[in-house]
Nucleic acid binder design. Structure first.
Length: 292
DNA sequence: ATAGGCCTGACG
DNA sequence: CGTCAGGCCTAT
């Protein structure tokens, strides 16, 4: 699904196109996606509301409405929000329609239906535990090396930590792999084993990769599209993600893949040594005294 | 820490 | 047919 750069790109477009518009009506076609309140109540409560602003927290989109309600949308693995002009055909897997006061429809499209949406009193995120426990935003100015260091203090592999939304907001499988490659850190390294220099580099790479992906309108390795149906181009810049066997752009070594933290993980075995930086003095293992 | 489940589609 | 997929929750 969309990760932070893609969701942020969508947010910016929606703020441009939808903020200030009124939702005339709302139709839920797949009720499973509405986690709160009941789909019927959701439809009724959304109707007539004006969208004041569109925000984001991690991978969640937050529509502030003019009656102190908040419309929350998570796009799951395969969700998109499409702005459809009057008369435009609606794509397959359109599960929710919001009719706007300029005649356009905002369409929630999601083939795999792993997404979710809720309509809640502003800031009352009890129905959305994942949102409530969201970790720090890596692109905020308040996200410093110290913030990262405290995130890494816990246990677990570095890749698992980067993917854990309650520790760090918005990073998914693509960007975790791209960040770790650019930082020269193997995905299996224990998070707490990074020294200060590695933490500093990692902090810089997190911001660099996310910012650059944002400039390129995100990654479309399969079917991510923005509100206009346009693909991103950051997939052109991927150095390891889904590049199994292809040469690492930095050193030419073939990219490897391994399952880490339950996810497919791509890395360069040369640029991202599993044992971390080589200590110069690692003593050779003495061969055991054997026959002969 | 890891596997399984939720869903559908693309691809070999 | 099998494998894989950008997320995240639960259970073991």
């Amino acid at each position: 699904m969309p990760e932070l750069p893609e969701v942020e790109n969508i947010r910016r477009q929606l703020r441009e196109e939808v903020a200030g518009r009124r939702i005339l009506s709302c139709r839920v076609l797949l009720s499973r996606l509405v986690v709160h309140p009941s789909p019927r109540t959701y439809e009724k409560a959304a109707a007539g509301c004006r969208v004041v602003d569109v925000g984001r927290r991690g991978k969640y989109l937050l529509f502030s409405l003019d009656n102190n309600l908040q419309l929350v949308i998570h796009l799951g693995m395969s969700g998109s929000l499409i702005l459809a002009a009057p008369g435009d055909p609606h794509p397959p897997h359109t599960h929710i329609r919001y009719l706007l006061d300029d005649g356009r429809n905002l369409l929630y499209v999601d083939p795999r239906t792993f997404g979710e949406t809720a309509l809640v009193p502003a800031g009352d995120w009890r129905a959305l535990p994942g949102l409530q426990r969201m970790g720090p935003e890596p692109l905020d100015s308040s996200f410093t090396v110290e913030t990262l260091s405290s995130v890494l203090r816990g246990k677990g592999k570095i890749k698992a930590v980067l993917l854990d939304q309650s520790r760090l907001a918005g990073i998914g499988n693509i960007y975790a792999d791209e960040i770790l490659h650019r930082a020269g850190i193997h995905p299996c390294r224990p998070a707490c084993s990074l020294d200060e220099e590695e933490r500093t580099v990692l902090h810089r790479r997190i911001r660099e990769v996310l910012e650059e992906a944002l400039e390129k309108m995100g990654s479309s390795t399969s079917n991510y599209v923005d509100t206009r149906g346009e693909r991103g181009s950051f997939q052109q810049c991927h150095r390891v993600y889904r590049r199994l066997g292809l040469p690492c752009p930095r050193c030419g070594t073939p990219v490897e893949r391994r399952r880490v933290a339950g996810r497919s993980s791509y890395y360069c075995p040369a640029c991202q040594p599993e044992e971390g930086r080589k200590r110069p003095g690692t003593p050779p293992i003495p061969s055991p005294p054997g026959p002969s």
